[in-house]
Nucleic acid binder design. Structure first.
Lengths: 199, 199
DNA sequence: CAGGGAGGTTAGCGGTCGTTAACCTGAAGG
DNA sequence: CCTTCAGGTTAACGACCGCTAACCTCCCTG
């Protein structure tokens, strides 16, 4: 996958700023005028790029879920034949990268899903479900003791743990990205091991 | 502490329904008419009990933070002289009880804080900070290896793990409250142990 | 060099929402 | 029995918000 070097399109600028604002003040708490102002144009100008405010949220949430799922599938493909534990580690690593690099999106991800049109919400839910099932399978490969319901609960809980990055204070106060990533990774593995420990 | 048997006051009914609605659709996504309808009166009738919509949210959030902090202090007092691990277990147990019994409140707790007036938000933040510091101290009692910043990050992450209960599907699909509580407790301990493991 | 589309602008409409005003009612109490 | 007041009601106001309409201005292209 070639790294993008070209300038972001206006659509992408808008999506990025909208994500930040939605994460900060909630979908209903942000007006289109503010989103426009954040990219240097005025409110109604946004309608040259999106059908409406809902469409921005939909594109963000579908994008997030799709990106997580695609990334996970990619990692699973690359990790063919390696130890089960390494596969799980790779999933964890991918999720942590995302949680640390796109904190506004992580916030939106589990906060504004209900604001979507029915069809979009179903799509996002389906992508999320697939992502979860990838984790559940990888987890049970490592810990066959875990029954499926317990494994699913454990995965959701670890998502909660990894997605706590927005609560870890502003970027400056963190002990450094690498340190935080390592800590989160260890804790996730520890939580999984404990979940399987005394089943 | 005597268990309440008397009927809930109207104020309490309103707060409970408001919490549920705010958690479901967000603070800005719920109208006062809906909150009124949920308790059988009409919108403006609420103003006999609260100064405004903001006041309901404020009372909810301050109540949550205060309740968590008070409960934790109580548990610390009762657990005087016992092993450090047992103290940490008691904190975890208290938080899990809260997360499982008051899921709407847990959702509000880290989602709508920014909608508060400055003074209320500062109060809530202060209560939350005290609560976190109680945990950090208890955690470092068990794992003295953990430096304070790492301990604080670990605590926030475990909160994320424990507060994931709203994502665990509707109550019916859970494997039973006790089972879930035990699983969460084990995972929290496992995450803490791993955080301290290779410091 | 016409012209047409991409991407802006401002004005304004229609609906919603929080809040207030004015009024009503039933029960308690001297 | 009259008063008072807690706790409702409906009507309506003002602000805000998403969105559309109408118009403008480059820039690209045949």
């Amino acid at each position: 996958m070639a790294t993008r070097t070209d300038a972001p399109t206006r659509r992408e600028q808008i999506l990025k700023e909208a994500a930040r604002l939605f994460a900060e003040r909630g979908f209903h708490g942000v007006g289109v005028d503010e989103i426009g102002a954040a990219v240097g144009i005025s409110g109604p100008g946004l309608y040259r790029h999106f059908a409406g405010k809902d469409a921005m949220l939909a594109e963000l949430l579908v994008g997030i879920s799709g990106q997580l799922l695609t990334g996970a599938k990619q990692r699973l493909k690359e990790a063919d034949g390696v130890a089960a534990g390494a596969v799980l580690d790779s999933l964890i690593e991918g999720h942590i990268d995302f949680a640390l690099d796109d904190r506004p999106l992580i916030t939106l991800h589990d906060r504004e899903l209900d604001r979507l049109r029915d069809s979009d919400r179903k799509l996002v839910r389906q992508l999320q479900r697939q992502y979860v099932e990838l984790w559940v399978a990888a987890l049970r490969e490592v810990y066959p003791v875990l029954a499926e319901p317990a494994a699913r609960s454990a995965v959701h809980s670890v998502f909660g743990l990894l997605n706590s990055t927005p609560h870890l204070g502003r970027v400056g106060s963190l002990p450094g990205r690498g340190t935080t990533a390592t800590l989160l990774h260890r804790m996730a593995r520890g939580a999984f091991a404990a979940a399987a420990g005394a089943e």
